[in-house]
Design a binder for these strands. Sequence first.
DNA 1: TATTTATGACCGACTGGTCGGTCGGTAAAA
DNA 2: TTTTACCGACCGACCAGTCGGTCATAAATA
Lengths: 201, 201
Amino acid sequence: MPKIIDKDQKRRDILGAAVTVFSRKGTAAARIADIAAEAGIGKGTVYEYFSSKEEIFQACFGFFMDEINAVVLQRIYAVADPLEKFSAFFDAWISALSAPVMQSFMIMIEFWAEGIRRRGSDYGFDMAGMYSEYRLMIQNLLDDCVSSTAIPVIDTHSIAAGIIGAMDGIMLQWVLDPGAIDIEKALTALKQIVMAGLNTR
Amino acid sequence: MPKIIDKDQKRRDILGAAVTVFSRKGTAAARIADIAAEAGIGKGTVYEYFSSKEEIFQACFGFFMDEINAVVLQRIYAVADPLEKFSAFFDAWISALSAPVMQSFMIMIEFWAEGIRRRGSDYGFDMAGMYSEYRLMIQNLLDDCVSSTAIPVIDTHSIAAGIIGAMDGIMLQWVLDPGAIDIEKALTALKQIVMAGLNTR
DNA sequence: TATTTATGACCGACTGGTCGGTCGGTAAAA
DNA sequence: TTTTACCGACCGACCAGTCGGTCATAAATA
């Protein structure tokens, strides 16, 4: 086995393994030895790159979010028209469902749990902040649609929370019982409702 | 300290304490000693009523769901008209937000995590089944509305998943950052969208 | 080039602390 | 006196994190 030179790449490899293991077994039940095995390295080596399980978990947040954003958010930047941008947003999520990173969607539940448990305190990752940013992005998109069409003024902040919530909640039901939910159909129905609301005049 | 005679009541007391502790610290970090302290009894006594932490956790599911249903579902049975029933459903949830049981909403995250982790296998509680029932209830409500009005035929199963998902997702954002979400406003906005859709003709 | 030395990536046996579950005992009630 | 609700000291399995050591590669030396 040749030695690795690229420390950053190795760090990412470990984080990728950690996301997989945390997603599969949950943060508490995940063993450092599991992460090491998943990454194909020894347990001691994990501690050459991270100082604690906690640090690994916190780093997973940024790593996972970056991966999600890479397959979702980037697609909507190319579009200019607000309504089309909105449409692209849903399409991006729908087509991202088959991306490898979605196999680890369950780690979101761990982030929710830890994010809530430590809300308010300074902490290695900021779930509340991430959701705030996400809501704001959707809200701005909604505001753009409202001002560029004859849509009556609506509570765009609440609607933004509802849209994000619906996507989270639908995906939650999907991972809970993949056979009972046609995820593509469900997200498409959500898209149609929102788009229909935005096309009202 | 007089001895207690009502074993069922004591069991419920312990479960109530367990829900509180599981919700506050998470399943893994919750200690049996914490639950005992919360219930005001000794650790050994807990094992007179339950044989393991796992059994307590599984029993919490039914206990918590019964409490939620007591403050939510019962209110809509009194209403007959489909549209009004739907309205009552949202109102019931909104007014249930201040119920004591909602203080422990975070235990839902534990149920989601364990429910997903053990999906498919026989297990002490059935998250997927509960969501299926819940979706079916909403779907029937939607179907009633569709057939009793001039609403065009819609994908009521997907819509039902979306409504439940939106409520879960909005409440998740709320517990994650209570200051950023006006939960009553957000649920009211969701209600208005759904009701507006059902009043289309 | 061949050989020795230095570096640091890599590893897993070990340790110290933690906690689910047990069990022998106390005392209230019957 | 018997029964049983109640209890917390105790035990052993488990695991995060440590540490002494190995070995592939690079640098220095001959």
